[in-house]
């Protein structure tokens, strides 16, 4: 069996493991809410994770294009960039995929082909992790940009809207 077949066949189990590991980075007391509430409006965080890791997984087995992968990473990073995480904690979720796959592999019989393919797969995941770093940084920059713009807006409170126009007129 080649790795791709293995991944395709065990898609659901791997995704479940992956998601539950991501959710474990939140306080255990609230984790069941993130996992079990399936309403995308009452539980946007959990549902975004659920949705986007599937796209990422598809990317690994070549069913999603790189644009979709970048977009998915950004959806997740956007959330984790404003939560109580350090940078490494925030993007570590990509590496959890390795653990999820390994755990699933451990459950299946040894197969030479699989062990060989796994190395190249892990490089792929590493690449994805680097992309996640980029996207995380992008989100943090965006956050500070938003903050700057907010300060500007606050400052303009004291000059009023259309301040340029006003100066011009008076």
């Amino acid at each position: 069996m080649d790795l791709k077949t293995f991944l395709t066949e065990n898609r659901k189990a791997i995704l479940d493991r992956w998601l539950s590991q991501i959710v474990k980075t939140y306080p255990a007391d609230s984790s069941n809410f993130l996992l079990n509430n399936t309403n995308r409006f009452s539980n946007p965080v959990g549902q975004t994770f659920l949705r986007e890791i599937e796209t990422l997984f598809n990317g690994l087995i070549d069913e999603a294009d790189s644009e979709a992968i970048v977009n998915s990473l950004e959806q997740i990073d956007k959330i984790r960039a404003v939560q109580n995480f350090t940078a490494s904690q925030a993007v570590a979720y990509v590496f959890f995929l390795k653990t999820a796959i390994r755990e699933e592999l451990d459950r299946s019989p040894d197969d030479e082909n699989l062990t060989r393919d796994i190395l190249s797969l892990e490089s792929k995941i590493d690449g994805m992790a680097l992309m996640a770093f980029d996207s995380y940084m992008h989100c943090r920059e965006k956050l500070f940009e938003v903050r700057c713009n907010d300060i500007k807006r606050q400052a303009s409170l004291f000059g009023g809207p259309n301040i340029e126009k006003r100066k011009h007129r008076s």
């Binding site: 306080p27 609230s30 809410f33 009452s42 539980n43 946007p44 939560q83 109580n84």
Partner: peptide, 13 residues
Amino acid sequence: ADKCHFFIGSGDP
């Protein structure tokens, strides 16, 4: 418990 936007967005119990 799960009705607060701060809980939903942060997961902070």
